[in-house]
Design a protein around this nucleic acid. Structure first.
Length: 506
DNA sequence: TCTGCCACCTT
DNA sequence: AAAGGTGGCAG
């Protein structure tokens, strides 16, 4: 909340030029994602600057690790960006997802990370929709956009809408910006969106830190870990206290951490992602369906059965009222009234495979209902998608439900996959093209970057090396034709309003 | 490896 | 003042 603002209201340089990294904010911002080629909707002029890039770089050099817990753990550094190039009056939904960076499983031994096998099946992909969504371009560009409330979990059955990851696997966070104007809503044609990835934000999910250097970096920079900082004196004192013995005093870090000398985990390779330049993908789908439709699967990750079902979680507070009858216009208004800060976090299912843009698209109803919900509460509205494997024709739909979007749902509710209001997400029988976003979802980034997976079957535009020099390189994935898709079974669940444990108290 | 609990902090 | 975010650690 306030944080985003505090960090850098950087309004000063509102519109950095392409390729031109901001100097004065260099430490805080990375070069903007390269621009986009979006052909329509004006998405091409959107630029995204990663904040606190220096910090991200420090972690990245060592091999960033993010703790994942059953209850959900925030990311640190926090994913914060500055966005420019949005139409001040248009509405956009900003969301994030975290996709596999490759299909390997890693191990940390000899003080470094190395591949230890094949990745486990991808977890249900989920989307984290920024609480302020949908909001006008003016809103998003006015201040930094922080995803600090996003949480990562290793609980495959997580009921809170947190992003589910596998420990010891490498991931790449992605930011999606979806235009959500009434004239460009999900249910309509021309849904435009763009995807931005910053390679320095890739990380390996762990249940406990492997590299003590990462631990120290976290302690030094995360305010919540301040309790672990301290002078040697404090250390000693504490140590003595903890171990009532007279053990030789050893630096806390040494004591606490496993032995890990210094070697950068990501070992020179920054592994696929690491070394990849940032990429930015934008796309416009001609139709909503296109967006939703999964791309051909260039690469497939096995999906657990559970994944095959689309799970929808409704906001507890969902107002049925709000959703159902909502019309497109509704959301406009609601948004205005709602205060972003109050908004709760929303989670949507993302299909890894297909990245779930779609859900986002829904903004209309969504925001309405969600935003109005009590502030601060994380009522997650999440949708878990089964992740369709890209190659699996059956997976395609991304509908998300949330009662939110009646308006957007042009489809018949009776269809299984139509369960969601959002039909568009649902698979479109016809191969449609998926916008990059959708595609990207799940395939390991490595593939995507190296070759747009989605395109696999298509010709992929050569990476447009537009800003090669800049970290962000943009790759456009053009829609590929998709095979007919079938829908996932949708499994809906309504949260009973059971908040996170922590929230119970509140 | 993973989990639960704890002290210590921030918000 | 309460809620909730951290890493350490034992099991």
């Amino acid at each position: 909340m306030a944080n985003a603002i505090h960090e850098r209201v950087d309004t000063g340089k509102d519109s950095p030029k392409e390729n031109k990294p901001e100097n004065h904010t260099r430490s805080l911002s990375s070069p903007p994602s390269p621009q986009t080629t979006c052909t329509q909707q004006g998405m091409d002029g959107i630029k995204v600057y990663m904040q606190e890039r220096e910090l991200w770089d420090k972690f990245h050099e060592l091999g960033t690790e993010m703790i994942i817990t059953k209850a959900g753990r925030r990311m640190f550094p926090c994913y914060k960006v500055k966005v420019t190039g949005l139409n001040p009056k248009s509405k956009y939904i900003l969301l994030m997802d975290v996709v596999p960076a490759d299909d390997h499983r890693y191990k940390f031994a000899d003080n470094k990370w190395s591949v230890s096998g094949k990745a486990e099946p991808a977890m249900p992909g989920r989307l984290y929709v920024h609480p302020d969504s949908p909001a006008t371009g003016s809103h998003w560009t006015r201040q930094l956009v922080s995803f600090q409330k996003l949480k990562l979990t290793n609980n495959h059955l997580d009921p809170f809408g947190h992003i589910i990851l596998n420990s010891m696997h490498k991931y790449q966070p992605r930011l999606h910006i979806v235009k959500a104007d009434e004239h460009n809503g999900f249910g309509s044609k021309n849904t435009a969106f763009c995807t931005h990835m910053f390679s320095e934000t890739s990380f390996i999910a762990v249940t406990s830190y492997q590299n003590h250097k990462i631990t120290q970096l976290k302690i030094e920079n995360n305010p919540f870990a301040k309790g672990f900082r301290g002078s040697d004196d404090m250390e000693l004192h504490r140590m003595a206290k903890i171990q009532s013995k007279e053990y030789p005093v050893v630096p806390r870090s040494s004591v606490r951490q496993r032995v890990c000398p210094s070697v950068s985990p990501f070992g020179g390779e920054a592994r696929g992602l690491g070394s990849h330049p940032y990429s930015c993908e934008n796309g416009v789908s001609s139709t909503t369906q296109d967006l939703l439709t999964p791309p051909p699967a260039p690469y497939t990750l096995p999906q657990p059965d559970s994944n095959k079902h689309m799970q929808v979680y409704h906001c507890n507070k969902r107002k049925d009222d709000t959703c159902p009858t909502t019309e497109h216009h509704h959301y406009n208004k609601s948004y205005i009234n709602s205060s972003p800060s109050d908004a709760a976090s929303y989670y949507h299912p993302s299909a890894y495979p297909p990245p779930p843009l779609p859900p986002a698209v829904h903004p209309p109803g969504l925001s309405d209902s969600l935003h109005r919900s009590e502030a601060g509460q994380r009522q997650a509205c999440m949708f878990a998608g089964s992740e369709p494997r890209l190659d699996d024709p059956s997976c395609t739909s991304w509908s998300y439900s949330c009662p939110l979007t009646p308006a957007m749902t042009p489809m018949t509710p009776t269809d299984p996959y139509m369960t969601f209001p959002h039909q568009p997400y649902s698979s479109s029988p016809r191969g449609s093209q998926l916008s990059s976003v959708a595609h990207q979802g799940s395939p390991p980034l490595e593939d995507s970057l190296s070759q747009c997976p989605y395109q696999t079957q298509n010709s992929r535009p050569p990476q447009t090396p537009q800003h090669t020099s800049s970290p962000l390189r943009e790759y456009h994935c053009y829609p590929t034709s998709l095979s007919p898709t079938q829908y996932h079974t949708l499994h809906t669940q309504i949260r009973g309003g059971v908040p996170d444990r922590r929230e119970i108290n509140s």
